[in-house]
């Protein structure tokens, strides 16, 4: 394995959980709901994935459990902001706190237990291609899912009727409602989709990235995923590039250190964050473009008049 190949593999692994969580949150936000609880759903997915993999001995069932529990957990949030029309910012934060607390309680039994790793699945023929094969066709299933989801979400949002409905709900819930779209139902589904994706991202952490359970193992990645959605101005393929860019900057600073570059490591560690701000400023300067893509009702509650 060449060094470039190895580095790219590392970047892919670091970027996959970010991508999974961000693509789910993108759909949620496109429907006009801002869920700041990604971190909480992610950590629930991580413990659920780990626990079910341990119980069944099968990491695939663990992955599935991560997605399902992530979705169920997001219903706490959904019920509050959609049915009871509570403030989305605050409710999302509550979800994060609750998720960190509950996962810690649930995980006490799994401390110091080696995890079961989700093994890579080689795709016949394609994985034989030099260089690209091992990178893109000899990966764990969550990598394939993450790429598949980006394509599927992009197709869904911009090429299907249901996607159009979802965007309509996000852009103007009143007119969508008047047109007979069940705004609340659409949003419930979008929230649950976001929860399932965040759960998958968590399962990636505890079954692929570092196959073990440790408290707070999401370590702020949920927040980065949220940042990526804005950074991508709500476009699926930009989320893809954003996640990989963020992963790459993070890995590059480690390589710079190992090569012995004499810059304080704190400055190198801060690079990904500074880079995000700079790129965001560059992207956002085009006001028109941002306005087109930003879901206009993002963060605003909706009560159907009867």
């Amino acid at each position: 394995m060449g060094i470039l190949e190895a580095v790219l593999l590392t970047i892919i692994t670091a970027a996959t959980p970010l991508l999974l969580a961000a693509i789910g949150e993108l759909v949620t936000e496109r429907s006009g709901v801002l869920n700041l609880g990604v971190e909480g759903m992610m950590i629930i997915g991580a413990i659920a994935g780990f626990a079910f993999a341990q119980m069944t001995g099968n990491p695939y069932l663990g992955t599935l459990a991560g997605a399902i529990l992530g979705a169920l957990f997001s219903l706490f949030f959904g019920f509050l902001v959609l049915t009871l029309v509570t403030n989305q910012y605050a409710t999302g934060l509550a979800l994060t706190i609750l998720g960190l607390g509950l996962s810690g309680l649930w995980g006490e039994a799994y401390i110091g237990v080696p995890g079961i790793k989700l093994q890579p699945v080689a795709i016949p023929l394609l994985s034989e291609i030099p260089f690209f094969g091992p990178l893109f066709f000899k990966q764990d299933i969550l990598f394939y899912i993450s790429i598949g989801l980006v394509c599927a979400v992009s197709y869904f949002l911009f090429r299907t009727n249901a996607g159009l409905k979802l965007r309509a709900v996000g852009d103007n819930h009143h007119s969508a409602h008047a047109l007979g779209v069940n705004v609340i139902a659409v949003r419930y589904m979008a929230v649950m989709f976001g929860g399932a994706c965040a759960g998958l991202a968590g399962a990636h952490l505890s079954l692929v990235y570092t196959p073990q359970w440790v408290e707070n193992m999401s370590a702020g990645r949920g927040w980065i995923a949220l940042a990526l959605v804005v950074f991508a101005s709500w476009r699926p393929y930009r989320v893809l590039s954003g996640a990989y860019l963020f992963g790459a900057v993070g890995i590059a600073q480690l390589h710079a250190q190992a090569l012995g570059i004499g810059i304080p490591s704190q400055f190198l560690s801060a690079l990904p964050y500074i880079a995000t701000v700079v790129v965001l400023v560059l992207i956002s300067r085009n006001r028109r473009l941002t306005l087109i893509n930003t879901p206009a009702t993002l963060g605003k509650g909706f009560v159907p008049d009867r």
């Binding site: 509050l80 009871l84 509570t86 607390g101 509950l102 810690g104 309680l105």
Partner: peptide, 22 residues
Amino acid sequence: ISDKIGRVFQGLLLFYVLSCDT
């Protein structure tokens, strides 16, 4: 009992306050 309970309480309290404010 574990310190995680404290976190759970904070999350619950916020959930309930937000719900009740409805």
